[in-house]
Computed example of a mutant assay.
Amino acid sequence: MSLKKASLIIIIILLIDQISKIYIKTNFQLNEDIGVFSWFEIVFVENDGMAWGTKLSDFFTFISDKSAKLILTLFRIVAVTGIAFWLVDVTKKQKSKTLIFAIAIIFAGALGNIIDSVFYGVLFNDSHLQVATFLPEEGGYAGVFHGKVVDMLHFPIWNGTLPEWLPLFGGKYFSFFDPVFNVADIAISTGIGILIVFNKKAFKEFPKTETPLPESHNNPI
């Protein structure tokens, strides 16, 4: 797969991700939800930390939430830059399409969430008890690098009380599954899943073709 095709995949994922986030941000109040099916609903939440809302300050109590957010955003930028170099390298070396595709969608997902973290605090005002405005006159809800990631996809596939006979968790309430995520998260998870499940295919080495010698060398006079 060429870098041009990989770039097209990245652009498509970024467009879907950002369009869905901007729509939710400008049409929903925070925590507002709409049921689509019994097993799927759209819920507007914002995540200013890592996966499932975890923050660096939860682990390092001496770091303020604001500093933790900045560190996380800068780390994401460094990481996505590394992924970009990796993508360019594997396309130049003509590695497997599986590997290039996986890296491309991971990059697209990571970049999609970075856009939220870097710019959304400036581009939108707060969504608490109101629908946010794009480019509000009074300014955004946070500065550059301190935006929150917009999540909206929730799949409450099953919830209920577990059977009593189940060890450790028997009789307890269980929900599968609670996390709310976005298109960028799906891209990242899918890409990582491909690298794990199709590891051998992704990292398969193709035999290098030898450049044939000029005709004069093959048939010496």
Rank of each mutant, 00 (worst) to 15 (best):
L56R: 01
A142Q: 03
A84M: 13
I105L: 09
K25F: 05
Q18G: 02
I192A: 13
Q94D: 13
A187R: 00
D65H: 10
F169M: 13
P167Y: 06
K204G: 14
F174M: 15
S117P: 04
G82F: 08
V88E: 12
G143C: 04
W86G: 05
A104F: 01
I221P: 11
L129W: 10
Y173Q: 08
K95S: 07
S127D: 03
T73Q: 04
Y120Q: 02
I221G: 14
G121E: 00
N47P: 04
A108K: 00
K55D: 06
L15S: 08
D151T: 03
F206A: 15
M50W: 03
P163C: 05
I9E: 07
F119P: 01
F155K: 05
V131H: 01
N219G: 10
L213S: 13
K92E: 09
D151Q: 02
T54H: 15
I188R: 02
L72Y: 05
G147A: 08
K148H: 09
E215A: 10
V88P: 05
K25T: 05
L3A: 10
F181C: 04
I42G: 04
E164I: 09
I34A: 10
R76C: 13
A51V: 07
D89V: 10
G35M: 14
K148E: 03
T61C: 09
L87T: 01
V183C: 05
H154V: 04
N27E: 11
W86D: 06
V36T: 08
N219C: 10
I63F: 11
K97N: 15
E137Q: 08
N31A: 10
I19F: 12
V90H: 00
K55L: 11
L135M: 13
D33G: 11
I186Q: 04
T161L: 12
D116C: 04
V45H: 00
F119M: 06
M152N: 02
G193A: 09
K200P: 07
V180C: 02
S96P: 02
L87H: 01
T91Y: 06
S117Y: 03
L168I: 15
V36I: 13
F206G: 15
G49I: 04
G160S: 12
D89T: 14
E205P: 02
T91N: 06
E210W: 06
N182C: 06
D116G: 03
W52S: 11
A132H: 01
L8R: 08
N219I: 10
Q29V: 12
L135F: 13
L111Q: 00
N159T: 13
D185M: 01
I100K: 00
S175T: 08
F59D: 11
K93R: 12
P179W: 07
L135Y: 09
I19D: 07
A68N: 02
G35S: 14
L213F: 10
D151E: 12
F44T: 01
G49N: 04
H146D: 09
I157D: 11
F198Q: 05
K25C: 06
G35E: 12
N199I: 10
G53S: 08
N218V: 10
I13D: 01
W158A: 09
D48H: 07
A102I: 01
D48Y: 05
M50Q: 10
L56M: 11
G170V: 09
N47M: 04
L168N: 14
D89H: 15
L111D: 02
T54C: 09
I114C: 11
S175A: 14
T161K: 12
I19P: 01
L99C: 05
T81P: 02
T81L: 07
H146E: 11
